[in-house]
Computed example of a mutant assay.
Amino acid sequence: MSIALDSRVLVTGAASGLGLALVHQFVERGGRVLATDVHAELPESLRGLDRVSYLTLDVTQDVDWARARDWVVEEWDGLDYLFNNAGVAAGGRIELSEMDQWQWIVDINLLGVARGCRTFTPMFKAQGSGHIVNTASAAGLIHPPRMSEYNAVKAGVVALSETLFHELKPFGVKVSVVCPTFFKTNLTDSLRGKDEAANASAAKLIDRAKLSADDIAARVMSGVSKGRHIILTDRDGKIAYAAKRFARPLYYSMMNKASIQMSKKD
């Protein structure tokens, strides 16, 4: 099943990274995109793109979500794809994390996705169609050490997506969850936490990643067009997830080895 021309798409976190790459993917396919982000003015990265409109949307604010829904109704009379993509990063050793950091990442990465799903589900049900695509992470399926906050919220996004996959299927609404590993992006710009060693390690993994946001976006589009529920975008994620599912001792060995290596650097 290919993605139809003239599809109506809303993307959160669309000004940079994977969100911006997804916008370009849909534009290339003749889609109409409502690109949203927290910026009050149209970001430079989105200027000059045909068939792209911009709306300020802070995913933690219900009033912003209501405004986005009203825009979609007034301008398009419906929506085909909702990409809950906006996200931030935090991590480190549990004893160095603070509760305001936990609240920040939960509000954006988990409750932001929940708000988007909650806002547009009635529309999708009424249409009898629609596709929700939630950006999680391989960290939502496998849980490496020193990533407590990030692992927890991304696992929550995976759980929410699976729940809605079953809940909305009788209404003709599809749900996918995207689970990439590290790729080149600006996620480190949002990185918070007092564990400087963990922050440096995450930044290094992102900087050394072979895949770009454009690479990941193309694979996401392939998975969406095929109607996949869990979209694993790269080899490392597929291997780690398979190990956890089918070779649990090997998976535990991998996680233990990673933890020991990290502890030696403390």
Rank of each mutant, 00 (worst) to 15 (best):
M1G: 15
S2L: 15
L5W: 09
S7R: 07
R8C: 10
G13P: 15
S16D: 08
G17I: 02
L20T: 11
L20A: 11
V23H: 04
Q25V: 01
Q25F: 06
F26T: 04
F26W: 09
G31S: 04
V33G: 02
V33H: 05
A35V: 00
A35N: 00
E44H: 06
R51C: 01
S53C: 06
Y54S: 05
L55C: 06
T56N: 02
T56P: 11
V59P: 13
A66K: 00
A66L: 08
R69A: 07
W71P: 07
E75W: 14
E75N: 08
W76P: 02
G78N: 13
G87K: 12
G87R: 01
G87V: 03
G91M: 10
G92P: 08
R93F: 03
R93D: 13
L96A: 09
S97H: 03
E98L: 07
E98N: 15
V106Q: 10
N109K: 01
N109I: 08
G112L: 06
C117I: 07
T119F: 05
T119Q: 10
T121K: 09
G128Q: 05
H131K: 12
N134Y: 10
A138P: 05
A138C: 00
G140A: 04
L141I: 03
P144I: 01
P145N: 01
R146K: 01
R146S: 00
R146Q: 15
S148D: 14
E149C: 05
Y150N: 11
V153D: 05
K154I: 04
K154C: 10
A155R: 14
A155F: 12
V157E: 02
E162W: 08
T163N: 09
F165I: 06
E167M: 10
L168Q: 09
F171N: 06
V173I: 03
K174W: 10
V178F: 04
C179P: 04
C179I: 04
C179F: 13
F182K: 03
F183M: 02
F183V: 02
N186A: 08
T188P: 03
T188F: 05
T188I: 04
D189I: 01
D189T: 02
L191G: 06
K194D: 08
A197R: 08
A197C: 09
A200T: 02
A203G: 02
L205G: 01
I206G: 01
R208I: 02
R208Q: 15
A209W: 08
K210A: 08
L211D: 05
D215V: 03
V220N: 13
S222D: 13
G223C: 13
G223V: 12
V224L: 03
R228T: 14
R228F: 03
H229C: 09
I230W: 11
I230S: 10
L232K: 14
L232M: 15
G237Y: 08
I239S: 13
A240N: 14
Y241M: 04
R245G: 06
A247K: 12
Y251W: 08
Y252D: 09
Y252M: 15
M254I: 07
A258R: 05
I260D: 14
I260E: 08
D266Y: 12
D266W: 12
